[in-house]
Amino acid sequence: MKRIVLVRHAKSSWDYGVSDRERPLKPRGRQDAELVAKQFVGKSKVPDYIFSSPAKRAMETCKIFTSVLNYPFENINIEEKLYDFGGVGVIGFVKNLSNNVNEIMIFGHNAAFTNIVNDFGSTYIDNLPTSGLVEIEFDIQNWMELETGKTRQIIIPKELR
């Protein structure tokens, strides 16, 4: 059995003259990420490994979650392949994980995460919003065998406010 928890980065700010990778979170994004993290920790087990895109907004979202989940931020793995907007890089990363790894949480971007949720989950969503979380479980032993799994939960910040 394998499990993936996908978390789209929180709402970011376009108010700064910085590159896409350097965009920070908006205050509302921080609040939404904390709401979703608290909801998640009350319903699910924290995955064994957490990975993040190197983009500032993804890492800031990850830092909020790790604080709520009581997971050491220094144990986070920053992965270049997760700075992906289509999904091919993310899926390639997942399929190449060690099979000793069974549960992961990934912080990244749209449209990649909406595509992955719809390609590999059992519940269709139009769009995974910022700070949105989807947990999918797979009845496989080998990540290379990744196929449609069972969507276990979807947490949307708008539904928690």
Rank of each mutant, 00 (worst) to 15 (best):
N142K: 15
R23N: 11
L69C: 11
G132S: 08
E22D: 15
K26N: 05
L35D: 03
N96Y: 00
Y71M: 02
Q31S: 07
D48T: 08
Y83E: 09
V134T: 13
A111V: 12
K150H: 10
I76W: 05
H9P: 08
K56Y: 07
I76Y: 08
E60Q: 14
L69G: 09
L160T: 04
Y49A: 03
V117N: 06
H9R: 08
V5I: 15
G132I: 05
S67T: 13
I76N: 04
I64D: 03
T66M: 12
K158P: 06
F138H: 08
N77K: 15
I64C: 06
L146S: 05
N77T: 14
E60C: 00
G17F: 14
I125E: 05
M1T: 14
Y16T: 11
T148D: 00
I76A: 07
R3F: 01
K63P: 02
I156W: 01
E145T: 11
Q141L: 12
A37F: 01
R57G: 10
K95S: 04
G108W: 01
K38Q: 11
K45R: 11
F107A: 03
Q153W: 03
H9D: 10
F113K: 04
V46L: 08
V5W: 02
I78C: 10
P24W: 06
N110Q: 06
I125A: 06
F113D: 04
I104E: 05
V7T: 05
V36K: 03
A10L: 04
R57D: 09
S98L: 06
T130Y: 02
D139N: 14
T114M: 03
R161H: 10
Q153L: 13
